[in-house]
């Protein structure tokens, strides 16, 4: 049952590849941002999995508890979540502008319009 210890990482890889696939294969810009978001979340899950400690508890000091999961990755991911949503907001704002300028948010149609000019 040795391989079960790697299951978390494999799910992370699967999620990361789903996000990667959406970003490179889909033409819709909103869908691309969703893919970026999935990619990002997979990295979060990876960090939190690293921080987990068998037999530990959440990192809040309690009497009689000596094993805690590592608080440092939690802090980093807390920051990363907020930064990630700020970036997504920025990206969605750009999508709105693209819609106003081109009348579409499909990447292939945008390229077609660019080639015409």
């Amino acid at each position: 049952m040795e391989w079960l210890g790697l299951y978390n990482y494999w799910v992370v890889v699967a999620l990361m590849m789903i996000g990667f696939y959406i970003v490179i294969a889909q033409d819709n810009l909103i869908k691309k941002l969703v893919g970026l978001n999935i990619f990002q979340t997979s990295v979060f899950v990876f960090f939190i999995s690293l921080a987990y400690l068998e037999g530990g508890t959440a990192p809040i000091a309690l009497e009689g508890v000596t094993q805690y999961s590592n608080p440092l990755p939690h802090v980093l991911i807390l920051t990363a979540i907020v930064v990630g949503v700020a970036l997504t907001a920025m990206g969605l704002a750009l999508v709105v502008r693209v819609q106003e300028a081109y009348g579409t948010i499909e990447e292939d149609e945008i390229h077609q319009q660019d080639d015409l000019h």
Binding site: I48, A51, Y52, G56, A58, L78, I81, V82
Partner: peptide
């Protein structure tokens, strides 16, 4: 995240995500 003992991160993810 709650299952993995990261309660603060879970709160943020639920609120923000």
């Amino acid at each position: 995240f709650v299952l993995l003992d990261a309660v603060d991160v879970a709160l943020t993810e639920a609120a923000v995500g």
